[in-house]
């Protein structure tokens, strides 16, 4: 894939690729549980309570088609799919993050309705009108 975006964006992507390349352990899970309120692989500022609000305002329910842009390891899209019974597409560039999300989807027994797409938010490979709801957390900044 050709490099895209500004130099700063590419550097940020490299940082996230490096971050997601490092595994997790009991300490990272304990930290996330204490800070975010869950252990879904989050590393940002969206808490479990805030993710629940996102799900409410998006009106998620079984059958809703959700797209999570910059999903990382699946936060919050995978969590929202589990909680609300909707389908979800997780989309991001670091492939290790998407692999972690796919593994968690299998563990949560939702992989039949949660998919992953390796894609930049600049070039989204979906047809128009594909989704009922789109979520992203701290991607525009």
């Amino acid at each position: 894939m050709a490099p895209e975006g500004t130099k700063a964006e590419r550097q940020t992507l490299d940082r996230f690729i490096a971050r997601y390349g490092v595994g997790q352990n009991e300490a990272t899970r304990a930290v996330e549980l204490a800070v975010i309120g869950g252990d879904w692989g989050a590393n940002g500022y969206t808490t479990l309570a805030q993710a629940d609000v996102l799900g409410q305002v998006l009106g998620l329910e079984p059958g809703t088609r959700l797209l999570d842009l910059g999903s990382g390891r699946g936060w919050p899209g995978l969590y929202l799919a589990k909680r609300h019974g909707c389908t979800a597409v997780l989309s991001d560039l670091p492939v290790e993050a998407l692999r972690a999300g796919a593994a968690r989807a299998r563990a949560e027994k939702v992989s039949g309705r949660v998919g992953s797409v390796l894609a930049s938010a600049r070039h989204l490979p979906f047809t128009p009108d594909s989704f009922d709801a789109i979520v992203h957390t701290d991607v525009l900044c």
Partner: peptide, 22 residues
Amino acid sequence: MLRACLRLLRPAGRTAFHTIHL
């Protein structure tokens, strides 16, 4: 990206997101 999101949503579809700003 926001224009792309609009195109991907069905009519009356909704987006919700968090963002950090100055």
